[in-house]
Amino acid sequence: MAGGRGETLILQEKKSLNWGWPLAQLRKAIKNSIVILAMLVIWEAAPRAGLVNTTFLPPVTEVAAAWWQLLLSGDLAEHMGASLARSMGGFLLAILISIPLGLAIGWWKPVSEYLNPLLELMRNTAALAILPVFILLLGLGETSKVAIVLYACLFPLLLNTISGVKNVDPLLIKSARSMGLSPVSLFRKVIIPASLPTIFVGIRQAGASSILVLVAAEMVGATSGLGYLIQYSQFSFLIPQMYAGIITISVIGVILNFLLVNLEKRLTGWKQSYRE
């Protein structure tokens, strides 16, 4: 009970730190958005003033209208659904495979020494360069798209998990061992929590690349998805619609990153240092 109270006290403290200064908060909000707003204004003004060709860069309000149309017609939801299903599928699958595998590889140091060069090589092989191979092997359907996302997510996750496990402070291990912990509980109670921050770096990298790679993959051979929408709109000369697709992807990327950063803060809040 008292524990709960203490925690809420600390939470309140943190909140008051963040929200106690509405003026500072406002200033921060302005700082964060002013450049984007300025860019939107330029985007609106430049085509209207005839500085750029309206056909290739329509004013932002026209793009917004096209986006609204896509939303109303249900096309946007359909393409977004297809894209998200693929990228989240590959991303989650990669988490399920990479984290346990990385924990195991990191724990057995000799194994990781042998495997690391290969993993480095594969990570630096651009996923898109392998896309033709995937299409060849798995066809043009969903499987090859999920597979390419899986491939792109696998290596950042794997490498970060391995390095997380390998770089656990040896003193913590020594301290836990001195308390007679069995190898299994040592792993569960020390190794995993200690490597969580590094694992999260991998999760964030993987989250970003899951979307980047997917969109490109959808441009090559697909009949749905945001990548397809962009490509198709360009072919059909529906330029505002094309920009609407691009913006949707950016926003999804930002939201995904925001969610992951928040999850990270929640899980590894103990790592917050005096930086803030």
Partner: peptide
Amino acid sequence: PDLDRGIVFQQYALFPWKTALANVEFGLEA
């Protein structure tokens, strides 16, 4: 190693993801 000996290290060796109380509980958990 066993719990009949307790060690205090120069660099504290506290588990950074645990609160003070949870750190103290760690050995008891074991």
